[in-house]
Amino acid sequence: MLSKADYSAPFFVAAALVLFFIGGLLTTVVPPLIDTSWSKPFENNDPANGPTGKLRQLNEQELKGRQIYIREGCWYCHTQQVRTILADTKRYGWRGVDAPVSTPDEFVYDSPHLFGTKRTGPDLARVGGKYNAQWHKTHFKNPADLVPGSIMPPFPWIANDPQELDALVAYLQTLGRAKNWRPDNDYEK
């Protein structure tokens, strides 16, 4: 049937595109139409359905921090997704409370998305609120001071710029907070 493509370029082009577009359309255009949770922001007021809370949009300062996170390529070494793997929920939990699995409705306002592919450093999906601002500021000066053995590089040009530093920390504190999943909101000292 396809042997006509051996000598007819127009037939070849048509066949190659038709085969490509079957899978192309079914896996890109169709899924968001079927799965509405991809575009509906998280909101839950009933504790019986899991953690309560509401996804909000970032404010100006937090967005600026997010831009710094993108500019410095933080997302090459830190993912933002607690996967459906038991060890993920335990490792990124807090004082014995498991971290809730990341769901599409928590990322509706994200653009660019920052799910990431590589964990040279730990996942940051639920890092918001775990450490106080001072911890983060010391950490950006030289991570190995706070975490011996860390290979995260120092970021002196951010640490020495109070505006950038505040913005970046403000952004990090929003991560994973749409779901009110922890028993108390204190910080690691």
């Binding site: 085969l19 896996t27 997704q81 459906t84 699995v101 990341s102």
Partner: peptide, 24 residues
């Protein structure tokens, strides 16, 4: 021709276990 048909379906395997629909 099998490459032409099969390859394009597989992008979502970068999100396995992640926040993406199970059926996908």
């Amino acid at each position: 021709w099998s490459l032409a048909f099969v390859y394009v379906w597989t992008g979502a395997h970068h999100m396995l276990h992640g926040p993406i629909s199970q059926w996908l």
